[in-house]
């Protein structure tokens, strides 16, 4: 595919004015429409699904994503995507996404919404209490500095910087029960 990034930014050269985006009606695509990407701010990203690492271009208008598709300049996928990559827009605009902190109390049957600062305070309290109660400094004369009561799982979907911070944070607590998707 010979299309270049510069061409991509001006896909159609359509001159019609007026913003167009039909997020609600599927009929939008049936009408002769001005450039879907007109007035959008574009940024590049890497696909969050498999390990190929395809590039995508995310177009946002007024801070809201309106289109996501393959990055034609990316040397691996050269604009192409699989069905998952092509569907990424539905993560940007999805009513099932969590937008509040959810809390389920012991023996509770429902979620409750709580504010961040309360959640962070509660979590830090539990981490500290568990760590203090289960911490082992020495074992058979060897300094082990291990927190025996907490596990941390996950990370293969996180960014490198997040993985690193999580790895460091877990070891700081003394966690050895540290595993993630690479093992399974």
């Amino acid at each position: 595919m010979s299309i270049t990034r510069r061409d991509f930014l001006r896909l159609s050269g359509v001159t019609a004015a007026g913003a167009f985006f039909g997020g609600v009606s599927f009929l939008s695509g049936c009408k002769s429409a001005p450039d879907k990407l007109q007035g959008t701010r574009e940024s590049t990203t890497i696909c969050p699904y498999c390990g190929v690492g395809c590039g995508l271009i995310v177009s946002a208008r007024n801070g809201k994503v309106v289109n996501i598709e393959g990055d034609p300049d990316h040397p691996i996928n050269q604009g192409s995507l699989c069905s998952k990559g092509s569907a990424l827009y539905q993560i940007a605009d999805n009513p099932r996404r969590l937008s509040k902190v959810q809390y389920r109390k012991p023996y509770g049957t429902e979620w409750e919404e709580i504010p961040w600062d309360q959640a962070v305070k509660m979590i830090a309290r539990r981490v500290k209490d568990t760590r203090d109660a289960t911490f082992i400094e020495k074992e058979g004369g060897v300094t082990v500095n291990r927190c025996a009561g907490i596990a941390s799982l996950g990370g293969a979907a996180l960014d490198n910087e997040e993985c690193y911070a999580l790895s460091k944070f877990s070891r700081m607590l003394g966690i050895t029960y540290l595993e993630h998707q690479a093992r399974i």
Binding site: S43, T45, I46, C47, P48, G51, V52, G53, V58, V65, I68, I76, L88, I91, A92, R97, L98, S99, K100, V101, Q102, Y103, R104, K105, P106, Y107, W111, A119, M122, I123, R126, A157, D159, N160, E161, E162
Partner: peptide, 22 residues
Amino acid sequence: KTEVFLLPAAASFEKEGSVSNS
């Protein structure tokens, strides 16, 4: 008995950072 906190996270294109492919 478990107390569960479910914290809402940002998607890959809602934050900045790097990922390493295969």
